[in-house]
């Protein structure tokens, strides 16, 4: 078992003929992810990835023809909100949006419409999710993983890879690794993913990678104290970040003394979660918690 994506995933890629879309679709296919369709308006009837994937003009057509049940979006920021709405409109229940730089007010409407439709959104501005040896959706490099008992959820992209690599190097494998995105408005939060990991029988331990800004980590800590009985380890990026400055991610800003790495660390520790000083310490903390 795993969460979000697996062997039964039938993936549609929106923006499959673009540079990034094509590059990463190829990597997803090589990993074994079942990509059943691509979508680029005006390129319907063509095929992508050396003839292996049919391309459609609309998501509705792609769903009708291929039974796609998940979508991964690589289209540029100005078109991405509409791409998410189109996917939800066509009945796709799970949508990953990799695109960064989407205006927050656009996301506000998208968030609520998708929720009303019952579609789960991961991202935007996220690296996607990989269920190890099953399916990879997004841009997380496939070779950093090893199959095992640890679920990982993160707000970052490359920092996620760093932690996964450290775990794999230490012989600690993963069930699913998911990046929820660094924007102020994202479709799924830590608690959504933590509750899925909590329910997943194969996930025996959970790693959470947070960063400065907002209070998602604090809320997640309170949830974990109440609901999660699996061993956990965490890392929070941004201890040296100055207040009032947006550290790349639109969400990563310390404002009015709130959202500091220290307040997050304290909240996590109060919930009984071990917090690392460096990503390299995560495997040791998991081992100390009895994870094999």
């Amino acid at each position: 078992m795993s969460i979000l994506v697996n062997n039964a995933t039938r993936l549609l890629v929106q923006g499959i003929t673009g540079r990034e879309g094509e590059f990463h679709s190829r990597a997803m296919l090589e990993y074994g992810t079942p990509i059943v369709a691509g979508m680029t308006p005006g390129k319907g009837g063509q095929s992508a990835l050396d003839g292996r994937v049919p391309v459609y003009d609309t998501v509705a057509e792609a769903v009708e023809q291929t039974g796609a049940n998940a979508s991964c979006i690589f289209v540029p920021a100005p078109a991405a909100p509409d791409a998410m709405l189109e996917a939800a409109e066509a009945g796709i229940p799970l949508i990953f949006c990799i695109t960064e730089g989407i205006p927050a007010l656009d996301m506000l409407a998208v968030y609520h419409v998708l929720r009303a439709k019952g579609a789960r959104l991961i991202g935007p501005n996220c690296p996607g999710a990989t269920s190890v040896s099953e399916a990879k959706v997004g841009i997380i490099p496939g070779e950093i993983h090893r199959r095992g008992p640890v679920g990982l959820v993160s707000r970052s992209g490359t920092l996620t890879y760093e932690v996964v690599q450290a775990m794999t190097d230490a012989g600690l494998g993963q069930t699913t690794c998911v990046g929820i995105g660094g924007d102020p408005i994202v479709g799924s939060n830590f608690i959504d993913m933590l509750s899925m990991f909590n329910e997943d029988p194969e996930t025996e331990a959970i790693v959470m990678i947070g960063e400065i800004g907002g209070d998602e980590e604090e809320r997640a800590a309170a949830y974990c104290a109440r609901e999660v009985r699996k061993p956990m380890a965490a890392f929070v990026a941004g201890r040296t970040a100055p207040p009032g400055r947006r550290m790349g991610h639109a969400g990563a800003i310390i404002s009015g003394g709130a959202g500091t790495a220290e307040s997050k660390r304290l909240a996590l520790e109060a919930a009984g979660i071990r917090v690392a000083d460096s990503p390299s310490q995560i495997p040791g903390l998991l081992r100390a918690a009895g994870v094999r």
Binding site: G157, G182, I212, R239, T240, M247, G248, H249, A252
Partner: peptide, 21 residues
């Protein structure tokens, strides 16, 4: 660094190693 989270982490580790980013 590539990526905001990793860039922050890199700064944090420089500090942890006794340096200043």
């Amino acid at each position: 660094v590539n990526g905001a989270g990793l860039a922050m982490t890199t700064m944090d580790l420089v500090k942890l190693a006794g340096g200043e980013p």
